[in-house]
Amino acid sequence: MQVFLITFGVFMLVIAAMAIGYIFQRKTISGSCGGLGSVGIEKECDCPEPCDNRKQKLAKEAARRKMLSEHRII
Score class of each variant (00 low, 15 high):
Val3Pro: 01
Lys27Tyr: 06
Ala63Lys: 14
Leu5Phe: 10
Pro48Ala: 14
Gly37Ile: 02
Ala62Trp: 12
Glu42Ala: 14
Phe8Tyr: 13
Arg65Gln: 12
Cys51His: 02
Phe8Val: 12
Glu49Gln: 11
Ile23Tyr: 02
Cys51Asp: 13
Gly40Asn: 03
Arg65Pro: 02
Glu49His: 07
Thr7Gln: 13
Lys55Asn: 12
Gly31Ile: 03
Gly37Ala: 10
Leu58Ile: 11
Lys66Phe: 10
Arg64Ile: 05
Gly40Glu: 01
Met67Leu: 15
Lys27Cys: 05
Thr7Phe: 11
Cys33Phe: 04
Ala19Trp: 08
Leu5Tyr: 09
Met12Pro: 02
Arg64Pro: 03
Leu58Asn: 14
Ala16Phe: 15
Ile15Gln: 08
Ile23Glu: 03
Cys33Ala: 13
Ser32Ile: 05
Thr28Lys: 06
Ile23Arg: 01
Cys47Asn: 05
Cys45Val: 13
Leu36Gly: 02
Lys55Tyr: 10
Glu44Trp: 10
Ile15Gly: 03
Glu70Met: 08
Glu61Asp: 10
Ile73Gly: 06
Arg64Asn: 11
Gln56Lys: 14
Val10Thr: 12
Met18Leu: 11
Met67Phe: 11
Pro48Arg: 12
Gly37Lys: 05
Val39Ile: 01
Arg54Asn: 11
Asp46His: 04
Arg26Ala: 08
Met18Arg: 08
Ser69Ile: 04
Phe11Thr: 09
Ala16Ser: 14
Gly9Thr: 09
Thr28Cys: 01
Glu49Arg: 13
Ile29His: 05
Gly34Pro: 00
Ile15His: 07
Ala62Gly: 02
Val10Tyr: 14
Ala19Cys: 06
Cys51Met: 04
Ala62Phe: 07
Ala62His: 09
Gly31Arg: 02
Ile23Val: 03
Gln56Glu: 07
Val39Pro: 00
Cys33Gln: 12
